[in-house]
Design a protein around this nucleic acid. Structure first.
Lengths: 333, 333
DNA sequence: CTGAAAGCGCTTACAG
DNA sequence: CTGAAAGCGCTTACAG
């Protein structure tokens, strides 16, 4: 590998000049600049990132804390792949790479990695658990953006869907279809999406002048089995609902299964609206009517927020990005 | 951040000694070793990775080339998330991090990133297209392991499922269920999984003494719509098949849809076996009988192979890892 | 607009 | 078993 010294020699300039053409090209004479660039291309010179990072403390790498937890082994984000695409694309457009942080090598592994590698920022995508290492990280002053949950810190912000708005829209849609006994299967209220979607459901009920019945709220866990179990509880009610807003698509699929097993039909007997718009939603039959999240938008918004913080160390963190949702009407409501 | 110099000062030793306790602890006096380790923990010393990499040319980072191509924008690997988990876990157990390589910043971006960051190795997970940058990388001498496709290079190997064996098993299963007119919907034969599964299908036919009819082979593209279209072609045949081995679960779901639309039943009229065992396979109704791949095994095997090459620069690359498959019998065959 | 020099935080022969 | 010193490949005031 050609080094900066070798390139400088071949161009007859100092290494300082070569360095400048790569970092502040505008300050160097156009002719020498061109010469340096040309011979760099010819001999295949590439600035070494470790040396750069060592000198500048900027690694041009962003950490991704994606927790494949001990506590919740099989945790899957409903659309990790899409988020990754958005993140990676937006980041690489700005010259940043994504470093997937190993987890589980003991407490505090994340902040250690951040310091050892001089990471410029980090994005969290976790299951909402209060991990002390994450809190410490967010509090430490490195730019952080978290997905799907609020964080606090001097340079931390988050991106989240308009969960309440999406939920409201779903309930209004159900109401528009003539349903009046509208139940919900909520996500865990300790998570922001769980709590906000439930709040949106309640708000819509109030707006529509529908009674808020406690027994119409069943809590699930965002997984299929949880949705199934919650629906069974709902089906045992004396006044069976004629519609249910389910706070996650996987749970909605489980709920539909429970309804079918009970000998009832969707949407005729009970209409169902989900949330997320996972791939599966379009593939089941009938297609799942659901509140779609802007999947790629998560990645893009996270990258944008992160880079804003990285570019201006003095600025306050950008406000949380709230992504609009879209109701996708298919067959279940 | 405490540096090695600061730590050395506090311990009353030279930086060389401190460096040794972290890199070759066995050569330093147990007492001084303990002292260094203790004060390191106390003052929160962490070796800086950039400085290490600069000095040693080992970054302890492995690149992941995951092509979200221009040529095939929406390309999704059926179980990227699971592979990522396996990879990340196995890698981090050995102290390596995963760097997701940006793509699209022009030709050759991958090999440039590898050189700039002194990556210790790279794993490819792509759609099988012949990307010159990848070939160059594999030929360059950095340890490479590719998923789902063979590669050649001085230090390259790959991990792949026993595609032919899995396909054979599927056809034998169909035969055991009494089916004799067994068709297949193949993946693109330019991909290794596509070609090998087709070969396995043909081998099984021969073993079973069944005729190999050209019109019973329909080529799909691994996507749902392709499977749907291929099945429609098969349904138009004079001698309609009574079973079909579909080389991918998504295509299988599409095929089932086509069968249903034609007013036929699965498995009564036509039995279906898929390949992959994607999440969806267990969720559709009836459940899809399919050849399961060892998802986490991909990541683990890739990490193992990579680390073997990294650890012994002189050794020949390990032979390709061929992962066994498992037939999962559900409702469609 | 350009160069000489110090410095970033480690590792590693080489002596002892 | 340990230390002094050179070196890894850059960047960045500081002069000029």
């Amino acid at each position: 590998m050609a080094t900066i010294r070798e390139l400088a020699r071949q161009c007859g300039v100092s290494v300082a000049t070569v360095s400048r053409v790569f970092n502040r090209p505008e300050v160097v004479n156009p002719d020498t600049r061109k010469n340096v660039l040309d011979t760099a291309a010819r001999i295949g010179y590439l600035p070494n990132e470790s040396a750069r990072t060592l000198a500048t403390k900027k690694s041009h790498m962003v950490g991704l804390v994606w927790d494949t937890h001990h506590r919740r082994p099989g945790w899957r984000h409903p659309f990790l792949q899409e988020i990754l695409i958005g993140l990676k694309t937006a980041l690489s457009d700005r010259g940043y790479h994504l470093l997937m942080l190993a987890t589980g090598d003991g407490e505090g592994s994340h902040d250690r990695a951040v310091r050892r590698h001089d990471l410029d920022g980090v994005v969290f995508i976790d299951d909402g658990t209060e991990d002390p290492a994450l809190l410490r990280l967010a509090g430490s002053g490195v730019p952080c953006v978290s997905l799907d949950r609020p964080v606090t810190g001097p340079r931390a912000t988050h991106v989240i869907s308009d969960n309440a708005g999406g939920a409201r829209g779903a309930v209004h849609h159900l109401h528009g279809r003539g349903r009046r006994a509208i139940a919900t299967i909520a996500g865990p209220v300790r998570t922001a999406p769980g709590a906000e979607r439930l709040a949106g459901y309640r708000a819509a009920l109030a707006e529509l002048g529908l009674p808020a019945r406690g027994e119409y709220v069943a809590e699930g866990d965002f997984y299929l089995a949880g949705g199934h179990a919650a629906m069974r509880r709902l089906l045992e009610l004396d006044e069976r609902p004629d519609a249910v807003f389910v706070a996650g698509d996987e749970m909605a699929i489980g709920a539909i299964r429970a309804i079918t097993e009970a000998g009832l039909r969707v949407p005729e007997d009970i209409a169902v609206v989900g949330f997320d718009d996972i791939e599966l939603a379009a593939l089941v039959q009938p297609g799942l009517t659901t509140v779609a999240q802007d999947k790629a938008g998560f990645g893009t918004a996270a990258a944008t927020a992160l880079i804003a913080m990285i570019d201006d160390p003095a600025a306050a963190p950008p406000p949380p990005a709230v992504l609009p949702t879209t109701l996708v009407v298919r067959g279940t409501a």
